[in-house]
């Protein structure tokens, strides 16, 4: 019985991991979003998802990404936060407040329907919409930086609205440890 529960839990965590995204950021200083276990099939120890750094640790980066939600989505050509986006950002605010060692880079992205330069500018608008919201909720602006990748880093690659909707995003990427 206990085995079955664990198996179900593991399956659901794996499914989440499969949905999570590759690092959007190229630098070395930032947490690899894939840092968690990627294949758990032979992981007989069974404790890889618990304890420090695991998704069940509310202070972990994995928890921030998967439980709090590291990204908000936008409508076509818009940078306005919707209700669900604000809900996620409220969660990010609480997490960043409780985990004050972390700084973050907010990455703004656009879908492929647009010219390159405009999409860089649009992604910057989106990233700043998130930054401004977090700052308005009390996160120190010195902990937040923004960058735009325009349409250069899609996570979904089909050319349909289902993919575009996921690509029009601003992702809060945690930087481990110290600010500055």
């Amino acid at each position: 019985m206990k085995m079955i529960t664990k198996a179900v839990l593991m399956t659901s965590v794996l499914a989440l991991a499969a949905c999570s995204n590759k690092s959007d950021f190229e630098g070395d200083d930032f947490v690899d979003l894939n840092a968690g276990p990627s294949t758990g099939i032979d992981d007989s120890a069974g404790n890889s998802f618990e304890g420090t750094g695991g998704v069940n640790d509310p202070t972990s980066v994995a928890f921030f990404q998967q439980s709090v939600g590291d990204r908000v989505l936008f409508e076509v050509d818009q940078s306005t936060l919707n209700g669900q986006g604000r809900l996620i950002l409220d969660g990010q605010t609480r997490w960043l407040t409780q985990n004050s060692d972390y700084t973050a880079i907010i990455e703004g992205h656009a879908d492929e329907q647009g010219t390159r330069e405009y999409n860089v500018a649009l992604g910057e608008r989106r990233a700043n919409a998130v930054r401004d919201y977090l700052v308005s909720k009390g996160i120190a602006s010195s902990r937040l930086r923004v960058v735009s990748f325009g349409k250069e880093r899609p996570i979904e690659i089909c050319s349909q609205e289902g993919c575009y909707a996921k690509n029009r995003r601003a992702v809060t990427v945690l930087a481990a440890g110290l600010s500055g």
């Binding site: 330069e117 860089v120 608008r125």
Partner: peptide
């Protein structure tokens, strides 16, 4: 060139 800052380019 373009310079973006604070949500404005």
């Amino acid at each position: 060139y373009s310079l973006a800052r604070g949500g404005n380019t």
